[in-house]
Design a protein around this nucleic acid. Structure first.
Ligand code: SF4
Ligand code: SF4
Lengths: 159, 159
DNA sequence: CAATATAAAGATAATAATGTCTTCAAATCT
DNA sequence: AGATTTGAAGACATTATTATCTTTATATTG
């Protein structure tokens, strides 16, 4: 079990890419999918969830595409996660015992609720602009590695 | 997306219950399933994963059942989680970008790896004995609420 | 207006997670 | 030995997730 669903991870990667191309206006989803090595249609569906939440603006037709509705430095990662996976991760008990712990919490209760709060803060603090800048300036990769790249990485362990 | 799979949550609840019945020797899985309101066959499969990891001992036939192979105060929650969901949660990147961040981490990298470590410690610290004691002494519920119980809970908000 | 490029919507398929049911194997008990 | 109780194994069913493919609606361009 991963922390985030695949849809969510794809959505985050795409969001960072779109933010990094901000200056070019509306970016076609097909371009995003190609750069990130994802299925264009699948990605379209995922990004629609962001459009429906008014995080993204979309525009059809030639020169259309998507772009963020607000200043990307104001769009936090948790908004992307919330739109795609929902906020359960930040509100539910890890052990899923509904009603439990209200009066008589288990030994996990305090540490879990505290931990959940920190997790939430972590994603609340990160904004798309910073993440995108890092992609541009420090070379963070957003697409999965193909076989050749994995080999290159292994052979150049020294650096 | 929850932190833990349903199988894992069921496995944890069952483990706590089994630990709380430790003194009664081998506990039939059917009894555990009944107490926890779970499918006996599904639970059997889940607990088999614990048996295969030598966390549980199992015994067939009349008076058979399962019990923990070691002192439950020495069995940490993370062992149950690892046997059922695996350790990916504690080893993988939240953004799932393999190879990324090795040389040039994204802004999330440090906070995520630190957070992951804390999460791991949280589950490494909790042992079944303590959790089971809490069930017995403080009334932690392990089974899901039925409709009536949910109503009772709501109507007695004051307490 | 016609051609084209694009997102949106929806049909379908593949895979994984969850859950139920049946049969089998082993242990116990009379 | 035979009946019974249990976990183990596996067949099947259901649902959710992930993914692809087709069609439709909308906007732009010329
Ligand atoms: S008491 Fe424990 S099981 Fe109950 S809600 Fe709190 S952390 Fe979850
Ligand atoms: S740099 Fe960021 S995306 Fe890459 S492994 Fe670290 S946390 Fe994950």
């Amino acid at each position: 079990m991963a922390l985030l669903s695949k849809s969510c991870v794809y959505g985050i990667r795409a969001s960072i890419y779109i933010a990094s191309e901000e200056e070019n206006g509306f970016i076609p989803i097909s371009q995003v999918a190609k750069e990130l090595n994802l299925s264009p249609h699948f990605l379209t569906k995922i990004l629609q969830e962001l459009t429906n939440e008014d995080l993204l603006l979309s525009h059809k037709g030639p020169r259309g595409g998507v772009k963020f509705a607000r200043d990307t430095s104001k769009i936090k990662l948790i908004e992307i996660i919330g739109a795609i996976d929902g906020m359960d991760l930040f509100t539910e008990c890890a052990l899923g015992l509904e009603g439990c712990g209200v009066y008589k919490p288990c030994p996990l209760h305090d540490s879990w609720t505290e931990h959940r709060r920190v997790l939430r803060e972590l994603f609340e603090e990160e904004n798309l602009y910073d993440l995108a800048m890092n992609v541009k300036n420090a070379g963070l990769r957003l697409r999965t590695l193909d076989q050749k790249e994995i080999l290159d990485l292994k052979s150049s362990k020294k650096k």
